[in-house]
């Protein structure tokens, strides 16, 4: 199984999927020290995004979010790769300045076809996500 999208931030990563059908705000929504989602009522509240292939529709919130992604990456708490349905500048810029591979414009069916814990590869240069197996 392969999803073709668009390259946003270059690089290659392999890891476990973490899905969120809701948008994510990194500023205020993610603890910058631990990578745990803290937004009240968010479907991923209490879960860590560390080392995951984080798949969510799009970013939201303050542009300071780009800096939070950078901080997470510097303290090794960031996701290994980011996959969006529709990228917006907060998360896109955050991924680029942090060197996190990122792609967007993947089919929305990805939320039905993948499960948390699945192993996937993300090719940020070519904009491709490849399913490798159930975790």
């Amino acid at each position: 199984m392969e999803f073709k999208g668009r390259s946003i931030s270059k690089g290659f990563a392999r890891g476990e999927v973490l899905l969120s059908r809701e948008p994510i705000s990194f500023y205020g929504g993610v603890d910058p020290n631990t990578g745990v989602i803290v937004e009240k009522g968010h479907p991923l509240e209490g879960k860590s995004i560390r080392d995951k292939i984080l798949i969510f529709p799009r970013g939201k919130g303050s542009t300071v979010g780009s800096y939070i992604i950078y901080r997470l990456a510097k303290s090794h708490m960031a996701p290994k790769a980011i996959v969006n349905i529709e990228a917006e500048p907060i998360v896109a810029v955050g991924a680029i300045i942090s060197g996190i591979p990122m792609i967007d414009k993947v089919d929305e069916k990805i939320f039905d076809l993948l499960r948390d814990g699945d192993i996937v590869e993300v090719d940020g240069d070519r904009g491709i996500l490849r399913w490798m197996g159930r975790g």
């Binding site: 910058p32 800096y67 510097k74």
Partner: peptide
């Protein structure tokens, strides 16, 4: 106050 340590590091 707005950008915090994350912004400063960047």
């Amino acid at each position: 106050h707005n950008i915090g340590d994350a912004g400063l590091e960047f």
